[in-house]
Design a protein around this nucleic acid. Structure first.
Lengths: 108, 108
DNA sequence: GCGAACTGCAACTAAAAAGTTGCAATCGAG
DNA sequence: CTCGATTGCAACTTTTTAGTTGCAGTTCGC
């Protein structure tokens, strides 16, 4: 996974409707039609959201007879979390360094 | 931090320009004007982005004389990563359970 | 084979977000 | 005190995205 793929994942996660979809899929795999019966948007809207989620590997389609069920992929979320943590740690390290320098200066 | 604050953080992180800003701030604190000299957008556009980032506590303003420098906050990123990891683990656990059940059924 | 259930594609509308320009207000340095 | 640098506010345009409706294509069950 390269850095260029990280931002689209966040863009995908930055929408309430998509989280509703992910939450529903977190309980059980479901098709776009099935999700449309639960959520307050049309099936086509859900299909578009699923396409977005599939593009960033947050869900994957599973054909079951004539319907296409979607499965949520925790691995992408875990991987994203790991990378986010690294970046956050870097920033904190720089701030800690600055703070340390400031304290050293005060002592002198 | 409540769940309702999580989605806006992702929305904030789902934009390339904001990542450019965060990357620049990751190297050194800077004002909107200073950032505008480096990035290919106007100062006002950057000011809006900084407001978005500040709303979700990814940066915080620091007055230095007549200018307002912004500091990146790693803690928010770390916290977000932690929560993301928990959710991903939940999903993976469900999938593992399902897989286990499927395997058990095959044996019988 | 035929009808019903599902999916997929396309065009369109509406709302949100990114970016711009222009101007007023503020504050420091000389 | 005054000039220049910097920030803040407002109106506007453009682009993107979320959502809709309508229709065509597939495939399963009877």
């Amino acid at each position: 996974m390269t850095a260029s793929t990280l931002v689209p994942v966040f863009a995908a996660l930055g929408d309430d409707t998509r989280w509703s979809i992910l939450a529903a899929l977190g309980r059980a795999d479901a098709s776009a039609s099935a999700l449309a019966e639960v959520l307050p948007v049309s099936r086509q809207a859900i299909a578009k959201h699923l396409a977005v989620l599939q593009d960033v590997r947050l869900v994957e389609p599973v054909r079951v007879g004539r319907e296409v069920r979607y499965r949520v992929l925790g691995s992408q979320l875990t991987e994203t979390a790991r990378r986010l943590d690294l970046i956050g740690a870097q920033w904190d390290r720089r701030l800690a360094t600055i703070k340390q320098i400031a304290e050293d200066l005060e002592i002198e």
